[in-house]
């Protein structure tokens, strides 16, 4: 009904096809492919920021609030880079990604914080993603309308984006070798600059490694309410000690969720008898240090067997 009334008064707003910036950090990794697909369906050109490099990291350290965790700092650097190329960027307010769960509170203040930090540089387009209040499709459709698209067009784009994002992740190749599992928040695991060196090093050491794919926690909300942490805990509970050689957690310095969820991961894996190591990343982490720790971890496990 509301959509219908809105359609009566609708005028296609000029400038609705202006390109929009999307950072390659933080929120796009939480819902991979969704936002790109949505804007593509609307016909809005998407400008992605460049992948993270050492320079991004250094820039982040300079411009961002010192006490933020690494992914939020990186977001600031990515946005700054986008600011030179587009006049509006998209930063959603993520309150809850899955019904019954909540997201990290830092994401709730993000659009306001970005607006405060980069005022005058670009416009911040935002949408409230709160699955506890309304389904994602409605959120997307409303975003389309606020961007100046016709209600029917917005709804169609929302459906299309959801269908595109729902395509199942490639199944993990099954082999007889025992594997290492790399866990962490999706935005850390999906960032090639942060996670790839670790995967490469493990492969160099001759062990099979698998990244935990981003996804919704399947079960009912239990101990942990933060969605990404609950997803990790669930995956750890389902691990088979015969198939999993060890678990490596990739966490970022000052991550609030991990500081509280860490004891749960540790306890679960201790009960299952699976070795566990947490690697903390910050802007100063040196590759050599990580290499040494990974080597020691893999060797000590090889010695156990």
């Amino acid at each position: 009904m509301r959509t219908f009334i809105a359609s009566l008064f609708h005028r296609n707003r000029p400038g609705r096809l202006r390109p929009i910036g999307l950072p390659r950090a933080l929120h796009p990794h939480l819902q991979p492919g969704l936002w790109e697909a949505f804007f593509a369906a609307l016909g809005v050109p998407v400008v992605l920021s460049e992948p993270t490099t050492r320079a991004t990291l250094e820039r982040a350290e300079l411009i961002s609030e010192t006490e933020h965790c690494l992914p939020v700092k990186l977001l600031d650097a990515h946005l700054e880079e986008l600011g030179g190329r587009v006049d509006r960027v998209f930063v959603p307010r993520i309150l809850s990604l899955h019904r019954g769960f909540i997201s990290c509170p830092k994401l709730a203040a993000l659009p306001d914080a970005v607006r405060a930090q980069f005022r005058g540089r670009f416009e911040v387009v935002t949408a409230d993603v709160d699955e506890n209040r309304r389904p994602l499709e409605q959120t997307l459709a409303e975003l389309g309308r606020t961007l100046g698209f016709a209600p029917a067009e917005s709804t169609a784009a929302a459906r299309q984006a959801l269908a595109a994002a729902a395509s199942p992740a490639a199944p993990i190749a099954d082999s007889d070798r025992r594997r290492y599992l790399l866990i962490g928040h999706p935005y850390n695991l999906a960032d090639a600059y942060l996670a790839d060196p670790i995967v490469r090093k493990l492969e160099e050491l001759g062990v099979a490694v698998e990244r935990l794919p981003a996804g919704p926690p399947r079960g009912a909300p239990a101990t942990l309410r933060w969605d990404t942490s609950a997803h990790m805990l669930e995956a750890l509970c389902a691990l088979d000690p015969a198939r999993c050689a060890g678990v490596i957690q990739l966490t970022s310095f000052n991550c609030g969720c991990d500081s509280m969820a860490g004891p749960y991961y540790r306890e679960t894996l201790k009960a299952a008898g699976i070795p566990f190591m947490a690697l903390t990343l910050d802007a100063h982490s040196a590759l050599a240090g990580l290499d040494t720790r990974l080597e020691a971890f893999v060797e000590s496990i090889a010695g156990r067997a």
Binding site: E65, P105, K106, A108, A113
Partner: peptide
């Protein structure tokens, strides 16, 4: 407290204000 999740996330806003 150092690293307080809600308070740290509004710091950029306080700075602007």
């Amino acid at each position: 407290p150092a690293g307080c999740m809600p308070e740290v996330s509004v710091r950029p806003i306080l700075r602007r204000l």
